[in-house]
């Protein structure tokens, strides 16, 4: 079960998250190879204007920017060179779902 994070909540380092797997056309700032993948928050950086609005010259709302850490195994499966190598990327809050720590489903 996943919980979309509310706007004023800041996720702490270590929180388990999943990147949304939607694939809209146009300028999006979550790399496609990370969509649908699970990782942990490495750190909350700061709020920045939403680049997906800035890209079209629109007024941009601040979105919290996170660094999210993924294992190579999570992203590439058996194709990973070494499963516990790490990939870290910056992802905006509106691309992140918090994974419930107690997953009853």
């Amino acid at each position: 079960m996943m919980t979309p994070i509310s706007e004023d909540k800041v996720l702490n380092a270590g929180t388990k998250v999943r990147i949304r797997s939607i694939m809209p056309p146009g300028h999006v700032r979550a790399p496609s190879y990370l969509r649908g993948k699970s990782g942990v928050i490495e750190r909350a950086i700061a709020p920045f204007p939403n680049p997906e609005q800035l890209a079209y010259g629109l007024p941009a709302k601040n979105q919290m920017l996170y660094r999210v850490r993924f294992s190579a195994a999570e992203i590439w499966g058996k194709a990973a060179e070494k499963p516990d190598d790490v990939i870290e990327a910056e992802v905006y809050a509106h691309w992140i779902d918090e994974l419930d720590t107690v997953d009853a489903t």
């Binding site: 800035l54 890209a55 079209y56 010259g57």
Partner: peptide, 9 residues
């Protein structure tokens, strides 16, 4: 006049 995001888009 525009942002680096507009450049990328």
């Amino acid at each position: 006049y525009f942002t680096v995001d507009g450049l990328r888009r």
